[in-house]
Amino acid sequence: MSKGTWEIGEVSFPLSEAIKISIENIKKRFTRALITALSVTLGIAFMVTLLLMAAIQEQQGKEGAAAYLYWLLFISLMVCGVGITNSMLIAVAERYKEIGTYKTLGALDRHILQLFLLESIVIGGLGGLTGYIGGLIAALAYAAINDAVNAAFIALSSPFSGLAYLGAIPTAFSLFILALTVAMALSLIATLYPAYYAARLNPVEALRYEV
């Protein structure tokens, strides 16, 4: 488009560059990213344990998890989300000046949004992965101990319990996908407000801010 005497061209920010900068940002503040990811880890671990235990119990012909446990799961994921929002708001406040600088160099609002959302997806993915592993171990350990105790007290109570574990394998696989999806989506949704706030910052005010 032409304005007066010179042409206005494209403003670009390729995804590959944005991903690189987001990962550098996480590496720079790794401890905090780890703590944020840990809250995702705990929430996801709880989810995986609960769903996997329910699957194993159903395979053993017992009842699955009680309904109130699903409520508890929902609440714990909410708490986890609020923790992420809080942590990302701090990350934005810390980087006011940096955000102002990006804008003076030609960044659009959506480029700033992109940087923070990518960061949250990576953190969410990290938390989802560790949460899945943690939850899997916890569920298997619980089921194994439960069986051992049962076997000690009631002879022949569950002679084919090994089959129940095998039967839960498809659930464990689908839980892997679920854990990653929920973790990344949760982290992304929790970061929408902080990222939007960062993107809308007026460059003059952002630059004036002293940390």
Binding site: K103, L105, G106
Partner: peptide, 10 residues
């Protein structure tokens, strides 16, 4: 806003 970003960059 878009044109201003371009101006700041170029």
């Amino acid at each position: 806003a878009y044109e201003l970003a371009w101006l700041r960059a170029r």
